[in-house]
Design a protein around this nucleic acid. Structure first.
Length: 373
DNA sequence: GAGGGACCGTCG
DNA sequence: GACGGTCCCT
């Protein structure tokens, strides 16, 4: 049943990599020997690991194939694992390179080993990160789960290992054609997606309209792997609800742009605390395109070719969920600019009425403006 | 073309 | 009252 693959945790740490906000669809199963489950289009992949070995298991939907075919299925799963975890990239080697270039990195590398970039499905990645604006990992995870439950059929179900009377349902990520339906916006709003509901439906619609139905739309996104970073980013920015940060996340996490460093408020803080960037730790400053570029350039210069991967290690080390193991913040003393407390003033909100008419033309205008900027 | 506010919902 | 941002309008 379980297959094994020799792989030290310095190359891959499942608990960190699967829960640090790259993917929101891995289910954590079991209390003692923790397993992670992930639903693909045709199967569920189960993983667990010990210090030297990664174990994997393939679960297929009901009409189980004959025993003859099982090795083939496991072989397919292994191919998927190699691709998804990018196991051909030697993470230890990267860690030592980053540590040489960067003292901050070298101070955390042993405690946060095995953190690598996943190579995700671009559509899933895009939609998930449209959900991420003004949001946190816990809620994003719930939203993505609920998206899958409502918009893709259950592939299979398994008894909950904790309470075997409960069946856990596994749903793949829904395709663009399903999310493009006009009713999706209202439904997602009811499901608690807020203003992101419209972004998701419209992005799916745009994808279908511009690049065709079937799997053409998804193929278009996947093909952006072959485009330059700038070209791919320009395409991503055309979608509604996708700004620079979300676009950069998709570039890094599913389109092979390993040097891209997405800048959010968190990374901004890290850059100020540890990399001598001017700014305030206490007050929230607006993330302007200019500031974004500045931070991006700074961190790319520090970490080099795989800067995006390095960023993920720093980011994870600073996440609350992992902070019990110790955080970088207190250990490195760098000169920091004096805090400039400037409380945000908030204004009473005006009632709002109108929404825009139709998709295609406004999009073109918007795209032009973006390109100009 | 830079700056500021609104936007959903959740949890302090 | 802040939050892994984006849109839209001054």
């Amino acid at each position: 049943m379980w297959q094994s693959l020799a792989l030290p945790q310095s190359q891959l740490c499942l608990s960190a990599v699967l829960k640090n906000g790259q993917s929101f669809r891995w289910m954590v199963v079991g209390a003692s020997s923790t397993e992670y489950h992930f639903c693909l289009r045709d199967r569920v992949v189960c993983l667990k690991q010990d210090p030297t070995t990664l174990f994997y298991r393939t679960i297929l939907p009901d009409p189980q194939p004959s025993a003859l075919h099982l090795p083939l299925r496991d072989a397919e799963t292994l191919i998927w694992l190699n691709d998804y975890f990018q196991l051909d990239v030697d993470l230890q080697k990267l860690y030592s390179q980053w540590a040489t270039r960067d003292k901050v990195f070298s101070s955390i590398e042993t405690r946060f080993a095995g953190i690598r970039m996943l190579r995700q499905d671009p559509f899933e990645n895009l939609i998930s990160f449209i959900c991420s604006s003004n949001n946190n990992i816990g809620r994003i995870t719930k939203m993505v789960q609920s998206l899958c439950r409502h918009y893709s059929p259950c592939l299979l179900s398994l008894p909950d290992p904790v309470d075997p009377l409960i069946q856990v349902q596994y749903h793949p990520f829904p395709p663009p054609s399903v999310l493009a339906a006009p009713e999706v916006e209202a439904t997602l709003r009811d499901l608690g997606f807020g203003y992101r509901a419209k972004y998701i439906q419209r992005t799916a619609k745009m994808l279908i309209d511009a690049h065709g139905s079937g799997d053409l739309a998804e193929k278009f996104l996947t093909n952006l792997r072959n485009a330059t970073t700038d070209d791919a980013r320009e395409e991503l920015l055309k979608f509604v609800g996708v700004g620079r940060k979300v676009a950069d996340c998709v570039l890094l996490m599913s389109l092979d742009k390993k040097d891209v460093v997405p800048v959010d408020t968190h990374v901004h803080q890290i850059a100020i605390k540890h990399y001598g960037l001017k700014g305030s730790l206490s007050s929230k400053t607006n993330m302007t395109p200019k500031l974004y570029e500045e931070i991006n350039a700074k961190l790319t210069a520090v970490w080099g070719d795989y800067a995006g991967w390095a960023h993920s290690v720093l980011f994870t080390s600073d996440l609350k969920a992992f902070s019990s193991q110790g955080v970088v913040a207190t250990e490195i003393a760098l000169p920091t600019p004096p805090p400039t407390p400037s409380p945000l003033k908030r204004k009473a909100r005006a009632a709002e009425v109108e929404s825009d008419a139709i998709t295609v033309l406004p999009l073109t205008e918007r795209a032009k403006r973006r390109r100009a900027a």
